[in-house]
Design a protein around this nucleic acid. Structure first.
Lengths: 365, 365
DNA sequence: TTGTATGCGTTATCAA
DNA sequence: TTGATAACGCATACAA
């Protein structure tokens, strides 16, 4: 079948000395009777080349289906126009969303992306960084990863590094100024919005359901406790589940059903949805018997029954911003800014008003 | 901040002539007092190198944090150990799943992946192919794309090409033998399984809901009609929706609710879930008033209320297989096999038994 | 306006 | 067992 393709090409490229796989600048230069440099310049749109030869070169390039060799170019130019993207798991809607917008923005600005999944293993994350270093990516975005920023910076020569929703402890504490390149949402504010929504609607006995041991879990749980305290409620119960509890939420649901609160704030939408389903098995139907709010705003939260109330994280914006600020930094020789984005609570039907509006008044007073 | 890193290096690398960014083979050779070739061979584990020098080289490489230059190596070796992955949309759970397993398998076998999203636009798909060609990927996987296999094969020099769930018409007709490299599931069989499930459970007035104009839609719709006919039922109704109808399924739901069938087979899970939700707004609750079966087996189908009955497509297996057969082909100098995988119906609670078991007997007789 | 020569970092051929 | 050298394809400094 390779033969077939060759046969077609022969029609246009009568040259006999054509054992080579890819056509090079050299080949087109030879056809047009100019030097390699002229061909190179013509294709680069160099103004010093006469219109005539430029057009001839371009035409021949098209005819020969010339495609530049990125490796050779990179070697010479000392840049690759490639970005590294390290993401924990593409099956997670949030990471899919981030990767999607990241790739789109990168593509539109002429960069391609080398993607590697870290699967929440430090070893794989390290490996990913090595891959990026070898390929000489011009910039790297690290999403929800656990490697220390210090290690990341020294592994990948890139000072063009961006951390999206970092899970490393050093980047979680919101009280100290964020180092450059950190793009995250405001966990505390988002959590507070969830609590406020619940309390404003009359819920008082509310609990938090943590999932996994990532730093953001701790941060949200603490923010939850603080918000509850601020609203004058007694210390809440915190349930802890494994990070993949959403796949098999039975035990967790049983634990919650044993002494059910009025409402649950869950670490993420996956868990919220799973719990909503599992709790039904224990006779707790949402929102009649229990209110549930999720975190992330994945698209399936809008399709659930009842529709999930959730704190939507601007994942798409983060991905796009990551690529954009990385490329800006690369091209400007600067270092990407740190930015923290707000989250927004979207009320669905998994929570309801369970008490008079007066509740709001007295609570906020 | 670059200064800081350099300062650290100086401790170990006293050489003054060190303005260079990355450490090269040359640098480590110089430190160990051997030639570049020896250093190269030592690092490659060449048996002809004495154990002493090999260890010295390796130690120095580690000390200097040497990381090979992939561009230079590619240029010389005429291969990149990179795979191209073209996928329509990472936000779609199915494509996320495919990309996830593809990347994992590739990574485990030492290949990295350049990812680009086609967003269902031929122009972008073409661009993606160009990117792959420029970067000299050793193989390319094209997922659910609409470019013709002919064009793909000529754009990317790779005869190492794999088409996962191709949507191009020429690859859809299941009556002709599949060309090499095609990995797909059996649409007809899957659709038949859905119809059988429904009919076996007593449903008789069933309709199909198409979404978009992709080839697989036509194939499934045709298979649906054939299966319905085979089971001795009258010609079914076929509803047609746009490919993103699942985001705003109101009109479609209204159309269906105007003359509701007993059950719906939907093009995919997203649509099924959206319809399940939207139909409720028209007083049609699933499965009480209407049965719904989806297609894909995305993880949120297990979390829906009621749990979705769906034809599960082995997306993960396909992604893994794509990478595996691509790499096998590359390393073996062969061409990847064509394979069609079966789908499996998983019964959830969005369908139920609405008639006696005798129905099955008489229908299959 | 165009051509010549060089080097990017690596591996491989050949010679020692 | 090791070293000198060339070549991979491209872009550019310098020369013409």
């Amino acid at each position: 079948m390779l033969i077939t393709a060759r046969a077609e090409d022969d029609r246009v490229n009568g040259d006999p000395a054509d054992q080579r796989q890819r056509v090079r600048l050299q080949d087109i230069a030879h056809q047009v009777n100019v030097s390699r440099s002229t061909a190179s310049r013509a294709l680069a749109g160099d103004q010093r080349i006469s219109a005539a030869t430029r057009e001839a070169v371009i035409a021949m390039a098209a005819e020969l289906r010339y495609v530049p060799n990125a490796a050779a170019r990179s070697l010479r130019m000392r840049h690759t126009r490639a970005l590294g993207l390290l993401v924990p798991d593409l099956r997670d809607p949030v990471h899919g969303q981030v990767a999607s917008t990241f790739e789109q923005e990168a593509g539109e600005r002429g960069y391609c992306v080398i993607l590697v999944t870290g699967r929440n293993e430090v070893a794989r994350e390290r490996l990913a960084l090595k891959v990026f270093a070898e390929h000489g990516t011009d910039g790297v975005a690290i999403v929800s990863s656990v490697v220390s920023p210090r290690e990341a910076r020294e592994r990948v020569s890139a000072d063009h590094l961006v951390f999206v929703q970092p899970e490393h402890r050093s980047l979680q504490l919101s009280d100290r100024p964020l180092p450059p390149g950190v793009i995250r949402m405001d966990d505390a504010q988002g959590t507070r919005a969830a609590v406020d929504h619940l309390v404003d609607n009359g819920y008082r006995r509310i609990a938090y359901v943590a999932s996994g041991v990532r730093a953001s879990n701790t941060v949200r749980a603490e923010a939850f406790k603080a918000a509850v305290r601020e609203r004058g409620l007694p210390p809440p119960r915190i349930h802890s589940a494994s990070s993949d509890a959403w796949r098999d939420p039975g035990d967790l649901a049983a634990e919650i059903a044993a002494d059910p609160p009025e409402a649950l704030v869950c670490y993420d939408d996956k868990l919220a949805l799973a719990l909503m389903d599992a709790l039904r098995g224990f006779g707790l139907v949402c929102p009649r018997d229990i209110g549930i709010v999720g975190f992330d705003g994945i698209s399936f939260a809008e399709l659930s029954n009842p529709r999930l109330t959730t704190v939507v994280v601007p994942s798409g914006e983060m991905g796009r911003l990551a690529a954009a600020s990385l490329i800006d930094a690369i091209q400007g020789g600067t270092v990407p800014d740190a930015v923290v984005l707000p989250a927004q609570l979207i009320a669905g039907e998994s929570t309801r008003t369970i008490s008079l509006p007066e509740a709001r008044m007295s609570a906020s007073a």
